[in-house]
Design a protein around this nucleic acid. Sequence first.
RNA 1: GGCGGUGUAGCUCAGUUGGUUAGAGCAUGCGGCUCAUAUCCGCAGUGUCCGGAGUUCGAAUCUCUGCACCGCCA
Length: 511
Amino acid sequence: MSVDKRFYLTTPIYYVNDVPHIGHAYTTLACDVMARYKRARGYEVSFLTGTDEHGQKVEKAAHAKGETPLELADRVVKRFQSLWEKLNISNTDFIRTSQERHKLAVQEIFRTIEAKGDIYLGEYEDWYCTPCETFWTETNLLDGNCPDCGRPTDKLKEESYFFRMSKYQDQMLEHIEANPDFIQPKTRRNEILSFLREGLRDLSISRTTFSWGIPVPGNDKHVIYVWFDALTNYISALGYPNDSNDDFNKFWPCDAHVIGKDILRFHTIYWPTFLLAAGLPLPKKIFAHGWWTVEGQKMSKSLANVVEPNMLIDKYGVDAIRYFLLREVPFGLDGDFSHSALVHRINSDLANDLGNLVSRSTAMLSKYFKGELTTPCKETDIDKVLRDKFIQIVAVVYKHMEAFAFNKALQSIWELVSAANKYIDDSAPWTLAKDDDQRERLGTVMYNLLEAVRLISLLVTPFMPDTGARICTILGIDPEDQQLDKHDSWGLLKPGTMVEKATPLFPRIET
RNA sequence: GGCGGUGUAGCUCAGUUGGUUAGAGCAUGCGGCUCAUAUCCGCAGUGUCCGGAGUUCGAAUCUCUGCACCGCCA
């Protein structure tokens, strides 16, 4: 086992037939928070996102608009990329399945598995909707008709390459049983286990009905099936198979594939069995998060309630959105997005609790000491309680972060915000300020308070990078040099530092 | 239909291996402070722990059963 502190995590690659919505933003954001957290803990992080560009739907949509599939993809990719920039996403790479590096990797893994004898040419038989040019399984049909357009379907055969997935059923079962954390949360693991126990069939991994895709090596009539193509992005981005930058060697196996629950099976069965067949190590963890409803209703184009992330960021600010999405709902469960809940969180958690804490703390230091931190003196009981609480809860936050329990991590951080607010009440600086003999005590209280604010800002930074940096700047420390692994102990603020009087971090939203 | 899960305060949920008056946050009511973005701190509640039966000295927790809701079944 490597002792190097490296961490590789991925979002799914997003299909360019769809434009970015809150669901995409959520997955990507969760990964970003984890990536920033791991970096802050001293890890070298590889954080991949990207786009899935092949397939019949894209081909058809492009033709309908009179452009090539690649032109369509180029257009939509920009929308994803600009949103990630706006959301402050710190991905280290962006893979597109139309890229040459990806094509090379997909064809190589196909050849490898074929050479092993796990790919064979056969016939794919299913129900076909001619107008939609789409195959459907029997269970998907609605009264025998196409679930998309409602028109009748025909039973059709198509020549197809198959992957001997059935061969890996027992191996997968054993792996999942031996690794309880491989699939999270637990309910998703149960689903996959029961699915596996019912038996795996071989998987059709090529199509001949469209051409926008990666050709099967040695047979141009066939295009490689979208999931075989798409899943391979996780290693093609690392440079598989040539690995000229040594990234594949450094970062594979992946620490976590973060996905939505809709693509669970592809990631927990298809992908691992491909890897087993290719003789490559399996990812360490697949974490499937839940869905967002909007104002209590399912998001849908027909309801026109799809939440546009750009608009939200413009209206409420990027950090408020980042905070809300990860605080409101346990990662792994479904949740509801509502404007009233968002405004409520912004006002109570961000403006009243955190923002106001920074305001009152810096205002007092400014008023009583012209903003200059003094050397802390004798520690009292309430000081010790505060310090102990911070030491203890920092560890708890780390524990939650390692478990992808973002909402619990934030809850714990907010216990610290409350503790700091309570410390102000208990120590009553305004009373100390009236007595010249208490000058030293007042300075100590101010020091402890600002030190609490410093640690809170560090903990909050992975979630709200701009806010974290802003607080650091106010405290007169360099945000660039504030990694948790070097700065997470109590008492690191330097006496003599000049602290700014803060302007409100999060203005209250009047309702 | 098969498998899995959920049902606890007005709302969202915690409740470890069954053990004294069932908890947190938000919302509500009352009190306190004045440094602060009218913000903060403290106190107070209220619960047939979905229904029923059983095991036990003792069940929110274990067993059976009924009801309701949710997920998965290429």
